[in-house]
Design a protein around this nucleic acid. Structure first.
Lengths: 194, 194
DNA sequence: TCCTCAAAAATGAACGTTCATTCAGGAGAT
DNA sequence: ATCTCCTGAATGAACGTTCATTTTTGAGGA
């Protein structure tokens, strides 16, 4: 693909992310998508077989970017609890700063598209199977500090509150400021600590 | 409305609940809905102005039924923690036994339909404004035992993990058995207890 | 008990709209 | 001249909604 082609492909993906996040998959017509990307409708089909493939490709891109963003150097100098709170805070900040990505992912997972993707991979390990910073922390550093429990329940206790609150924060229903982020992270830690 | 009319209206709502839960609002055509309810397409429009009104009416019914189901007599003889765990367990069992209702509600809240409905009302107070058993417990009995924090964060810490895990359980990705329910309820309690 | 008939309820083919997708033709590069 | 990429009107399928028609209902009269 030519460099120009790559550019156009990215334009389409960017427009798609915005429209899908704003209006949902079903209320984002290809015509409107083309308009926002400044390409003709037909051109989209040079880069993607159909709308479904576009959605799947977009998921890949967003997922990869998210995983990359969450890689942080470990800071062994502070307590395990503090490390946990740092990771949570980073995660929340990132998703708060990328509401389109968050909305798109939520929509993707809660649709027939996401059925084959295990949800527990959401933030704990990338689609490649490689574990994210979060997954490494939970399985490694923090292992001894965490109460023994089913991995699924552990994930739910950590990720559940984050996604729940972010939904409202991003819709503008709640203001998710620093004190509240701290409250949330502390609560999650108390839920899982030994 | 004749008793027969009421019956038909209920048939339509029941069929709608099933189809919406199975295929989503956008993949549940009125024609298919009519077929499953054993009525003609046109008949649906005798009972509901349009598809949107049908969805809103269905929400009302499901919400009322859920609120009714969650009313439990208080048991002051056991500890506050035990009361909390009981309430959580009841809630999870109810939603586990009513997966269509759960899926429908999730979809409703995460759609333009549910924008005007405050999400924190989900399980804490009914749409009528009357507080549910859960809301009463949190605001009343348990008040002194709970760490002071933003109501939104409190809700997120309690409801977030439940909905997160139930999604996977109802999709068949996880088996949510008694030990895990206990783990989850305990974790939530630890997250919010003083 | 049976018949009549107007109102109510039910029906589903037809309509208009929206949308994803296609493709014949054009523009620009080599 | 040829090839690659782009364009957007045209296509056909799917959908929500309507409405002319048929069927059911039940009150009143014989």
């Amino acid at each position: 693909m030519t460099p120009n082609g790559q550019q156009k492909r990215n334009d389409i993906l960017k427009a798609a992310l915005e429209l899908f996040a704003e209006h949902g998959f079903h209320n984002a017509p290809m015509a409107q998508l083309a308009k926002r990307a400044n390409v003709a409708v037909g051109s989209i089909y040079r880069y993607f077989k159909d709308k479904d493939e576009l959605i799947h490709e977009l998921y890949s891109e967003v997922d990869v970017t998210l995983q990359k963003a969450l890689v942080r150097a470990a800071e062994p100098s502070i307590s395990t609890q503090q490390q946990f709170v740092h990771l949570m805070t980073d995660l929340i900040h990132y998703l708060q700063d990328h509401p389109y990505e968050f909305k798109f992912l939520e929509q993707y997972y809660n649709s027939p598209f996401g059925v084959e993707i295990k949800r527990d991979k959401l933030l704990l390990s990338g689609s490649s199977g490689r574990q994210s910073a979060f997954g490494q922390f939970i399985a490694g550093t923090a292992k001894e500090s965490i109460k023994p429990m089913s991995a699924q329940v552990l994930y739910a206790l950590v990720i559940g509150p984050v996604t729940f609150l972010l939904r409202d924060a991003i819709s503008g229903l709640v203001e998710l400021d620093e004190p509240r982020i701290k409250e949330l992270a502390d609560g999650c830690w108390n839920a899982i600590k030994r």
